Amino acid sequence: MTAAVEFQSVSRHFGSGPNAVKAVDAVDLTIAEGSFFAMLGPSGSGKTTCLRLISGFEQPSAGAIRIFGQDVSAIPPNRRNVNTVFQDYALFPHMNVRDNVAYGLMVKGTPRALRHAKAEEMLHLVQLGGYGDRKPGQLSGGQRQRVALARALVNEPRVLLLDEPLGALDLKLREAMQDELKSLQQRLGITFVFVTHDQHEALSMADSLAVFNQGKIAQIGSPEDIYAKPRTRFVADFVGSSNILPPALTQALGGPAQWASLRPEHTRLAATGPLTGTVTALRYLGAATRVVLKSGDTEIAALVPAGDPLPDPGSTAAIAFAPQHLHLMEDK
């Protein structure tokens, strides 16, 4: 099967010489057709630049970008079979919802009746049937996000690019829209490429994801693999919450002298255990309390289910875990 999107040693540098900014640095990437793919990373990690390279709004300094096997390096954005949903939605405030959705078809010269019919079809798809005559200012944030989504889909792109589209929504609405986006992608069967700095969004929606750091991909794989088997300290720390144990401590626990990751949910407080320390903090999380211990120079956290007894701050406590949950990582 031909990949929907393929990067071959793609770089995007800004400036020249020793002061050049390597926004994207020799990235290799393959995105499967029909998948929900997430690009996850902190600000400045290169993920949004990669999205702009796919859309054509940025040109690579080196390497090749292919969309369904076609080298698109010299193809302008309006001739690529992709469309983008932006974080700020970029709706025209003077147009009603129907005309906003139909705008791309109008630019293509589609007759008015046909483009309005297609716009209404898209509005029903995103559960906004009957909203066509309203202006964007009369809609909630979630509704405006759906209008932007309908506008991107009306041109029937083979790849839909989403640039942190849920960032402006409150938590409850953002979680609801995550479910809707995933459901919509599965119904349409087109490739979604989703950029976010929110690990929960990436883990809950993506079939596969790439974790970016300093212009490079730190790790790529399924959400389950990246969470359970982080390759580096950066990935372990950025994706979820993890106890990162230095080589000397890993060796003292019976393993090799390597950095290791131990997720707090795989630990428990015990009368005795391989890890002991002084309780420095109790952080209530609702369903559990995060208990933080200081062992030498290392902080170690365990999750205690709601209702279970908690140690007192300043007391000595032990943490136990199953050996298979201690995951060894590269020295980075």
Rank of each mutant, 00 (worst) to 15 (best):
G141D: 12
G141W: 09
G142F: 09
R144P: 04
L149E: 06
L149V: 07
A150W: 06
A150E: 11
A150S: 09
L153T: 12
V154Y: 08
V154G: 10
N155T: 15
E156K: 14
P157R: 12
R158H: 13
V159M: 09
D163K: 01
L166D: 03
G167M: 01
G167D: 03
G167S: 14
L169R: 10
D170I: 03
D170E: 09
L171V: 15
L171N: 12
L171E: 15
L171W: 05
L173A: 00
R174D: 12
R174H: 10
R174V: 08
A176D: 15
A176C: 00
M177D: 03
Q178S: 06
Q178F: 05
Q178L: 04
D179C: 01
L181A: 08
L181C: 08
K182P: 00
K182E: 02
K182F: 04
L184T: 12
L184R: 10
L184I: 11
Q185D: 05
Q186T: 13
L188S: 13
G189L: 11
G189D: 13
G189R: 07
I190V: 15
T191I: 11
F192I: 07
V193N: 12
F194N: 03
F194M: 01
F194S: 02
F194I: 05
V195W: 09
T196S: 13
T196Y: 03
D198L: 02
A202V: 08
A202P: 08
L203F: 06
S204T: 15
M205F: 01
L209E: 07
L209W: 03
A210P: 03
V211N: 02
N213P: 01
Q214S: 15
A218T: 11
Q219I: 07
G221F: 12
S222H: 14
S222W: 09
P223A: 09
D225H: 15
I226H: 09
Y227G: 10
Y227C: 09
A228I: 07
K229W: 13
P230H: 04
P230E: 02
T232K: 05
R233T: 13
R233A: 11
F234M: 08
A236Y: 00
A236K: 02
A236D: 05
A236R: 01
S242F: 01
N243P: 13
N243L: 14
N243M: 14
I244Y: 05
I244Q: 02
P246M: 03
P247G: 03
P247Y: 06
P247Q: 04
L249M: 15
T250A: 15
Q251E: 15
Q251L: 06
Q251I: 00
A252T: 01
A252V: 00
L253I: 04
L253R: 05
L253K: 08
L253T: 04
G254C: 07
G255C: 06
P256I: 02
P256R: 11
A260D: 13
A260T: 11
S261D: 12
L262H: 13
L262N: 14
R263E: 08
R263Q: 13
P264V: 10
P264Q: 10
E265Q: 15
R268N: 03
R268H: 14
A270P: 00
A271Q: 10
T272M: 00
L275E: 04
T276S: 15
G277N: 05
G277K: 07
V279N: 06
V279S: 10
A281P: 05
L282P: 01
R283I: 14
R283P: 00
R283E: 08
Y284Q: 11
L285C: 04
G286D: 06
G286F: 06
G286A: 09
A287Q: 12
A288L: 08
A288F: 12
